[in-house]
Design a protein around this nucleic acid. Structure first.
Lengths: 226, 226
DNA sequence: CGTGAGGTTGATCGCTTTCAACGGAGGTGG
DNA sequence: CCACCTCCGTTGAAAGCGATCAACCTCACG
């Protein structure tokens, strides 16, 4: 079965790399550096090679919504037509590979599997956004945070390790803007998860899951866990 | 330029109709009748021909999130892989055309433009979901509602009519579950919009926009409008 | 050692939810 | 034809959760 790019930990040769050929070239970004802005002409897709990127929209009054975090192997720029609909910037030091959209479209027209892989990448993105809508619309603060941490565990580690340790390259502000809450609420509920024994916070950027079952119960809002 | 299926008011011949050929067949649904459930095998896509469908997820404790409403011309079932990830049911009396996924994939492999149109349909869906994440995560109740109504205006009527009248085939519960709020809050803010002179409510299912500028200002949270 | 950014915690406020009552529309049966 | 019932929507009052405002802490860096 095809492995969605979202799951790949490292940027293995994706089918579009070959197509893009010489037109693909890499780009280094430091923390908080922008890759593109809303309104820029969307001529390129980007594949994250290293680090983490954030896609976000900003309201006129400054409110911000992080649409998604892109990890190595993820594709950035799907879901845009002529212009980009949102901003993209590096969460931490990162490296991306740019892919000409025109070349990719030509490749998709010529090689059916390129189109298929592309469609599968978009499908994976749609799926994760559907799940995130449920999180944004219907979950409480602690449920949001538990869900977010579990997602990182599954993406970074898999389901094997019973007490996994994950890195949070993004700031509390990024997390807050992803989950639709404030940094204070993120912080408070992080502490609450720690006090409940679900996680440990050796550093602010490091989360150790101490009780996976509890975290999962909290993420789904199973009562009795509180 | 290609017209996204989301914008088509009626189901004109989409490129996949030809491909699906004889395998496509229509299906009538009455209000609240289910088309498929989460976990069902996702062998078909559906194109809405008439009426409105809702795609929604349900949490174990009953909380519900409507992911999207599908209007005539919209495609249902994108973003799923083996099984459907959410439920789909008719909001009102509706008619859908089923399209075999296997046939569609074969068509995409053979005809580049089928693949391209499919990709464009998915891209349009991604775009609207990105916008909706901002709504769910960062907007207040009245902003959510104003944004929702404006979206319906643009979809049903376009930007021409200065005082358009739109139909709300869905119940307050559906709207609430789409916007991540309660039916009471929907109702209260609908009244507030009416009292502010932004809209009129001749019937509960009919909205007349009286002041488009105000509604737009409210949707973006421009102050001074309140 | 001073400075500033990022993070935590406390106190208070306010919006949305919750709980509750009421009203109208539509359907059914006497 | 009307009484009755149920579903849906509206409105009010009270409660609760997360936002806001504010103070303090930690750590990296010059």
């Amino acid at each position: 079965m095809y492995m969605s790019p979202r799951i790949c930990g490292t940027a293995t040769a994706a089918p579009w790399s070959n197509v893009a050929g010489k037109s693909a070239h890499e780009q280094n970004l430091c923390a908080h550096e922008a890759l593109f802005f809303e309104g820029d002409e969307a001529n390129y897709l980007y594949e994250v090679v290293e680090g983490v990127m954030s896609n976000h929209q900003i309201l006129p009054d400054g409110r911000r919504q992080v649409i998604s975090f892109a990890y190595p192997g993820d594709l950035i720029g799907l879901g845009h037509t002529k212009d980009y609909h949102f901003n993209c910037e590096a969460v931490c030091r990162a490296r991306v590979r740019s892919i000409s959209k025109a070349a990719l479209m030509r490749g998709a027209a010529e090689h059916a599997d390129v189109g298929r892989h592309l469609l599968e990448a978009v499908t994976a993105e749609l799926t994760s956004m559907q799940e995130h809508q449920l999180v944004l619309g219907r979950k409480s603060a602690i449920e949001k945070l538990a869900t977010f941490l579990l997602g990182l565990v599954r993406r970074q580690i898999g389901d094997f390790d019973p007490t996994p340790v994950i890195q949070l390259p993004m700031t509390r502000t990024d997390i807050a803007d992803f989950l639709g809450m404030t940094i204070e609420t993120v912080s408070r509920n992080m502490s609450k998860l720690r006090m409940m024994g679900a996680i440990d916070l050796p550093q602010t950027t490091t989360v150790m899951v101490r009780n996976m079952k509890l975290l999962e119960a909290l993420a789904d809002g199973d009562d009795g866990a509180c």
